[in-house]
């Protein structure tokens, strides 16, 4: 059993997640990720509305003291169409563990990230007037 960890969402955490997403964009995005670390114009900047198949996504970037401090999601694809409910059956035997994240070498990654590209595009548009 792994050690239990506390997860907290902070503005810095969100900003670094955004930076990681930018870095992860690779071939998909034109803006070099390293630029996020440079001084930016302070203010709140709204990104472009980006197509994400299930709907549209739009973000707002907040720059304070030259750094990206928060990314707000203004519009998110509404997934109501995907929602469905199935009656649950008997309680089977299950295993529990505390989640512990690390780095591995893998061929592919499974995760709910279908909007990440729209997120990156919208964020890039938001950061343009801030000096990127």
């Amino acid at each position: 059993m792994k050690h239990h960890r506390q997860f907290r969402r902070t503005a810095a955490g969100i900003a670094s997640a955004a930076a990681l997403l930018l870095a992860g964009a690779g071939a998909a995005s034109a803006a070099p990720a390293t630029k996020v670390a440079y001084a930016l114009k302070d203010g709140t900047f709204t990104g472009k509305r980006e197509y994400a198949f299930y709907g549209y996504l739009k973000v707002e970037a907040v720059i304070k003291n030259g750094s990206l401090t928060d990314v707000k999601i203004l519009e998110y694809p509404n997934d109501n169409g995907r929602s469905h409910y199935i009656n649950s059956i008997a309680l089977p035997y299950l295993i529990q563990e505390a989640v512990d994240a690390q780095s591995y070498k893998v061929d592919f990654i499974s995760g709910a990230t279908f909007t990440s590209d729209a997120f990156i595009k919208s964020l890039q548009a938001a950061l343009k007037p801030a000096g990127i």
């Binding site: 997640a17 997403l21 994240a101």
Partner: peptide, 14 residues
């Protein structure tokens, strides 16, 4: 080899 993405740290795997 398939990584299971951490919902808390998207750059890491569970």
């Amino acid at each position: 080899a398939i990584g299971l993405r951490s919902p808390f740290e998207p750059s890491k795997l569970v």
